[in-house]
Design a protein around this nucleic acid. Structure first.
Lengths: 257, 257
DNA sequence: CGGGAACCTGTGAATTACCTGAGAAACGCA
DNA sequence: TGCGTTTCTCAGGTAATTCACAGGTTCCCG
């Protein structure tokens, strides 16, 4: 099942990104991210999704490898599983920080281990997501970390705009033509995904893979359902921006055109 | 006129693209802080949190190292644990002052330590916090020290304003639309954290990590509880300013909008 | 015009996230 | 020491959210 997902994500990576805003370092070179997890399916999933962002990815399966790779790869951000075979996530963090004192870290943790282990981790500006995560969530958090760390161009701001529709990633506010629109968490993530890929058809499989967590086992028509929710809130009584391409997927584009 | 101020005012504030206010030195370079503690977890925690403020951090694990580092790092402020393996905090202070007579020092002390010793020291303009501290507390105290150390006639920008809500970091006074509001210490710190990040969603984990002390092991719903207290005092009978983003966190913003 | 595939959406149940009252414990201060 | 204040736990209540299911609609094709 996970390999099906990989196939979908892979399909996306082979399509050339068009008109997407990319995060770049000040010198114009791509952002570098190190992914550390002992499950190979996870590192592969993440690597492909993050490469799609235009980032350069290196991965490691344990703490030792992570520290070694970090030394010469010099990543701008690290995705780090807290549960590694050879050392504790915190130990890895300590060693990473010795070489790269300013690198922001996105922790991956099990849902139930959050309370005690995470305390203090987000303190420095780091962040975490719980497993199982959605790829959109990981990407969004990473973008936030990189943007705030100063490794990337600071011109990039936190607002997505498509036509008269705006979505602010910091305040989680959405408005169309000035009217504020309240969205639930899932609706917000779905809309963010659409808006980050304007004028591009996204298949239901792709949407499911990026917006829902990787272990989601439900009916594929949740996507239809949530598209329907979004339309009710965003397109209601207006020129529609969310369009169905029968047999292909959905896309968002400015109302005028 | 502005350059006059820059010349006279030792430290000034600017606003970063993310809307956070940063302390900068007159020449625009980042503030430098030296962190001295023998527990590596503490220096790491503080380093990360202070770097996030945009400051340049160097750390040392003992008195000797501190004095050496201070000599060529020339910090604008020092965070100094009173309990060091090789020498007493007072001895370190003496030697630091030989090289940097005006540098303000923030002492870290155990809760039960004799406080009269500290009391004498802080008369000179230094300050202290007790372990275990909260990061917001340390950051706020440091900002105060740095701000005060430089200028006799520095502009008093110790007030945070969001809409008709104001919070004075020096006097700890809070008022909304002119009405004074009494807050407890924890409520004050939580509100300060929210107000220093207006219009930005802060997760419960982030809040817990910055507002509560680093050894807090309790339930995450204290955050909900204190948000509820704040609402009762700040939003009571008015247009609410504190908003819940279900599944994401909380944020504060001006009532109008 | 009929039938099937793809898509849309109303209904409702289960779950989750959040809010808040009550009271215990710890703290601070005289 | 004793009293008021503050912090925090616990637990019940409530409302928002997610999702399955199923019947309806639209579109495409012959």
């Amino acid at each position: 099942m996970l390999s099906e997902r990989l196939a979908n994500v892979w399909a996306m990576t082979t399509t050339s990104p068009q008109g997407r805003t990319e995060l770049l370092r000040p010198d114009g070179s791509p952002v570098r991210v190190l992914v550390v997890d002992d499950e190979q399916s996870i590192t592969e999933l993440l690597s492909m999704a993050l490469r799609y962002e235009g980032w350069q990815i290196r991965s490691a399966g344990d703490g030792t490898g992570a520290v070694q790779t970090a030394r010469d790869f010099r990543p701008d951000a690290v995705v780090l599983d807290m549960m590694l075979p050879d050392m504790d996530g915190l130990a890895v963090l300590g060693r990473l920080r010795r070489d790269l004192p300013d690198v922001p870290v996105l922790f991956l943790t099990a849902k139930d281990a959050v309370e005690d282990r995470i305390a203090g981790l987000t303190a420095g500006g780091d962040d975490y997501v719980t497993k199982p995560f959605s790829l959109e969530e990981v990407v969004a958090r990473l973008r936030g970390l990189i943007r705030r760390s100063g490794a990337a161009d600071r011109r990039s701001d936190s607002t997505l705009v498509v036509g008269d529709l705006t979505l602010d990633e910091d305040s989680h506010e959405v408005s169309r033509a000035g009217d504020n629109i309240h969205l639930t968490a899932t609706e917000f993530e779905l809309l963010r995904f659409l808006m980050r890929n304007p004028r591009r058809v996204l298949s239901k499989a792709q949407i499911l893979d990026r917006v829902w967590s990787y272990d989601f086992g439900g009916q594929a028509n949740v996507v239809e359902l949530y598209i329907s929710y979004l339309r009710r809130k965003i397109d209601a009584g207006r020129e529609p921006m969310i369009h169905t391409r029968r047999g292909a997927g959905y896309l968002i584009k400015p109302a005028a055109s």
